[in-house]
Amino acid sequence: MNQETEKTLAFFGRMTANLTHEFKNILAIIQESAGLMEDIMAISPLARDKYQERFNNSMNTIKNQLQRGMEMASRFNRFAHTPDHNSAELELGETMVHFCTLTERFARLKHITLQADSQKGQEIKITTNPLLLYMVLFYSLDACLSVLPAQCEIRLISAKKDENAAVKIACTGKQAPSPEQFFTGLRQSNAWGELENTAAQLNAELKCNTDDLCFYLILK
């Protein structure tokens, strides 16, 4: 197995492990809520009246978690199909929302907020390699998470830069490092090296704004 294949598999491994963890949490909540309802039904009718509100809450929890599970399943399915074609047309803003939903948990574990945004709601269509695009976004996120402290925010903004489609990765936070510390940290992280390599394969340019905590992935 060559090094690139190993890296791709490692990327898929981390993503799928993260998502299956989320599925297990969803199933566990549904199971406990259904179980609680069963427990309530098993006790006397008088007590059942007493627990009516809790019963209704459990029903709502089950419905909400089913909704969450179905959304994750369809996003997971879409992600699983990213290696199918070397080139596909994507809407960049929608892709950012999709990516952020899939990876939000990585940020949440570090008490960092991850959000997708678009410039003035404009639609940006690109034709690119979907898998490589997800990989560069993932390494960008991974590098930022290795540098930022808790309570910061990472925004992935789909934008146009010099007539090219671009993703702006903007970080903010009261405890955030200075731009100099931020970029030094990014460049020292393992993810940054992977990001540079993968961006080159995607023919994307990395452009850093040294005045603030933001950098661009310009998709050519």
Binding site: N25, A28, I29, E32, S33, G35, L36, D39, T61
Partner: peptide
């Protein structure tokens, strides 16, 4: 950290 899970489990 799954609050709904742990709260419901606690009740059970």
């Amino acid at each position: 950290d799954e609050e709904e899970f742990v709260t419901t489990l606690s009740e059970r």
